[in-house]
């Protein structure tokens, strides 16, 4: 196994555990919200906000993980009809598009969003955490997606050389 493959697998393993833990916390948080209202007769203000922020992190980190696994929903009715060579070219083109979106919107746009909210000291309503931390998942995942795209592109090239 090549070094880049090792790192790729390691990063995926870490991502998997992140997703599992966030999901488990999400379940516990909302269960706690329901039971605290019925059993303790008391509502806490932070449970809802924690759940919403966890969902954002789980979704956008999950999107990066889907990129690693190439499991996003896509339409292959034209792709299926292509020749092997064209498929290879298209596969690279797809990764280039994804790379550019991740760079321009998620990393650059996302970093500006994080910068703006941190600079202006915006705090969340009840947990009082800086909203910039919530938005930080966007540039973070964007960076991962860019790396995955490069990894996939290099994979297409090395496969070509092998065959």
């Amino acid at each position: 196994m090549s070094k880049s493959e090792l790192i790729f697998n390691k990063v995926n393993k870490i991502l998997e555990w992140f997703l599992i833990i966030i999901f488990a916390l999400l379940v516990l948080d909302v269960l706690f919200q329901v039971f605290s209202r019925y059993l303790l007769g008391q509502s806490f203000t932070w449970t809802e906000e924690f759940a919403r922020f966890s969902l954002i992190w789980m979704t956008i980190l999950g999107a990066a993980y889907l990129n690693a696994k190439k499991e996003h929903l896509s339409m292959d009715f034209l792709y299926d009809k292509m020749s092997v060579a064209n498929k290879r070219k298209t596969a690279i083109l797809i990764e280039v598009f994804i790379f550019l979106f991740a760079l321009i919107v998620m990393v650059i746009g996302g970093l500006n969003l994080v910068y703006t909210t941190l600079h202006l000291e915006q705090l969340s309503g009840t947990l009082r955490i800086p909203l910039g931390y919530v938005y930080a998942v966007l540039p973070f995942s964007g960076f991962l997606i860019m790396c995955f795209s490069i990894y996939h592109i290099s994979g297409v090239y090395s496969n070509k050389n092998k065959s």
Binding site: E16, L19, I20, I22, F23, A24, L55, M58, T59, I60, L61, G62, A63, Y65, L66, K69, E71, H72, L73
Partner: peptide
């Protein structure tokens, strides 16, 4: 949890 997180991410990232 992981399988569900993946399915969720497909739908939610579309959202």
């Amino acid at each position: 949890f992981l399988t569900s997180a993946k399915t969720t991410a497909v739908v939610m990232f579309l959202i």
